[in-house]
Amino acid sequence: GGVGMATGAYVPSKAVWLPAMKAKGLEISGTFARRGGAIHMDVSLTNKAMSVMTDFAIQFNKNSFGLAPAAPLQVLTPLSPNQTVEVSLPLSTNGPVMKMEPLNNLQVAVKNNIDVFYFSCQYPISMLFVEDGRMDRQLFLGTWKDIPSDSETQFQIKDCHLSADAVCNKLQGSNVFTVARRTADAQELLYLSLKLTNSIWVLAELRVQSANPNHTLSVRCRAPEVSQYVCQSFELILRN
């Protein structure tokens, strides 16, 4: 839960990215959220050292989707011992691109008056799902058929007790759009689309059976390396 709830989008809870013992007393925990069409890195900085910390700045390494700070890290007053400050850093997707492993890995450098510290974190790929990700129905059918079935990624979402309506609503809260719905052979088939910030389209079919809490997700994408991350993100969205 947390800050992203107003739009219904999935937001992971904050995790410790940099423990104080690895950063001369600076502890950083954080999460990522998409709010009002903009991506934010929401961080808590805690001073667990015995002296005041000042002069904070942040930099990202090249990453798969060109994420970069869109503004300086604003820590307006010195951080006293035992003090925590919450900062919401807006991010752009116009930074330098380099494919990372895993794809959603982000390497970060943070400096203060004491030293420079480095850590890695992973962002939910769903924060890259843009608001205009509903694909035209004719384009969906054509694209689905164009992408060979052997590059389809299948994934089981187990023990999910949501109705097809609830699934559609929950996914739409994270910019996954229902292009069409059909009932066939006692299954509800949902045809879904999303678009990533780098304009990669992802098409999906989710099979929901009313008597079975295990749903089958099939994903087709012209950049098939993103499919497994999208599958995992659907599971996180539907479970939260």
Binding site: A184, D185, E205, S218
Partner: peptide
């Protein structure tokens, strides 16, 4: 939904996927 042939195409796709 508009009957522009797409409804039918989605129905065929769903049938085909549900009964491969």
């Amino acid at each position: 939904e508009l009957d522009d042939g797409l409804d039918e195409a989605f129905s065929r796709l769903a049938e085909c996927r549900a009964n491969p």
